[in-house]
């Protein structure tokens, strides 16, 4: 998309004529707004942009973007998008889905899209609940969650989506939340600019079936003490005046400390470009849920060859070696005999 930009766009150019039908107050609205506001800044074009989704509330997203789009099947959006991105490296392909879509029914496709490093920007709206099916627990719900399908409490250990993505060899892994448009736009910009598969977990409030799930860490009054901003090259500090921070030692791994107790020099300096995902993984384990200080921002951003490019390079090499395919030659490529 490095073509000459013929005209600049506005958020309105990226909004379709379809009425948005999420529940009033849903966190999805603010994510949609952030994306529609970001798009003109990225300088892309609507006709070269595609949003692919699976099924779920979040998956209605493509209908509201004035781009090309496909609302596909539950869980399968990363697979559909893989084919599109491989076929068309000129397109800017986004994948949007929820925690059930991407980590339950579609978990397999997500991890394979990430490890292949397909050129996709993958947004996973995590509201820790099934919304569209009206309130069952999800693969990110906390243990013991009482829902319609778990009246005595859920038994399943939840996924930590950032840990999953890091374990799946993702080259770009980030987290943001629906209460901070600026942080969302900045994180999504980074994700979009990354060549290869980018995974962004977005904490998103479902005000109908799981209201307030993130209130304890994302509301304005507690954010400063409960969110740990990760910034490349900066010490990992948070809280009023950065009084708290993260240290890493061989004994305990990553843990939270009072900076005053250990000294500024002891605080971990975040390096999102570390080849080894171990440190990013440790940071992802600092929090077990939205009730304790939780890191947000870019956990990992490393360069690795993008799959579609590699695939196209093989095609180009084959054509260089033997010329463009010749059907007649193919048909005669095995032993033949002629009958007069």
């Amino acid at each position: 998309m490095s073509d000459v930009i013929e005209r600049s766009t506005t958020a309105k150019d990226w909004s379709s004529d379809q009425e948005v039908r999420w529940c009033p107050g849903c966190g999805d609205y603010s994510i949609l707004k952030a994306v529609q506001m970001l798009m003109p800044e990225l300088g892309g074009r609507t006709e070269n942009t595609v949003f692919i989704s699976g099924i779920g509330c979040a998956a209605r997203f493509p209908y509201y973007m004035a781009t090309y789009g496909m609302h596909s099947i539950h869980g399968r959006a990363p697979a559909v998008a893989t084919g599109l991105a491989m076929a068309r490296d000129d397109l800017d392909v986004w994948v949007v889905g929820g925690d059930g879509d991407m980590l339950s029914i579609g978990g397999n496709h997500l991890i394979h899209a990430l490890r292949r490093n397909i050129n996709l920007t993958i947004l996973m709206f995590n509201n820790q609940i099934y919304g569209l099916t009206k309130g069952q627990y999800s693969p990110t719900s906390e243990v013991g969650k009482v829902t319609k399908s778990t009246p005595f409490g859920s038994l399943d250990q939840p996924f930590n989506p950032v840990s999953v993505a890091l374990g799946a060899e993702a080259t770009f892994v980030a987290r943001t939340h629906d209460m901070d448009r600026q942080h969302m736009m900045e994180t999504l910009r980074r994700a979009r600019e990354h060549r290869g598969a980018s995974f962004v977990e977005i904490f998103q409030n479902c005000n109908v079936f799981n209201d307030g799930a993130y209130e304890g860490i994302t509301s304005r009054s507690v954010r400063e003490e409960m969110l740990i901003p990760l910034e490349h090259g900066q010490p990992v500090r948070f809280g009023a005046d950065g009084h708290r921070g993260v240290v890493v030692d061989a004994q305990h791994g990553a843990r939270l400390v009072e900076v005053a107790d250990v000294g500024e020099d002891a605080i971990l300096v975040h390096d999102e470009r570390r080849e080894d995902p171990g440190m990013a993984f440790m940071l992802s384990r600092l929090s077990t849920g939205p009730h304790e200080p939780t890191p947000i921002g870019v956990f990992r951003s490393v360069e690795r060859a993008e799959y579609g490019e590699l695939s196209n390079a093989q095609l180009a090499q084959a054509q260089e070696r033997s010329g463009a395919g010749d059907l007649h030659a193919l048909l005669h490529s095995r032993p033949t005999w002629t009958v007069d």
């Binding site: 090309y68 099947i73 998008a81 893989t82 084919g83 599109l84 491989m86 076929a87 397109l91």
Partner: peptide
């Protein structure tokens, strides 16, 4: 799924 995505493209 990938074949269908490519067909869309």
């Amino acid at each position: 799924g990938s074949a269908l995505g490519a067909a869309f493209g």
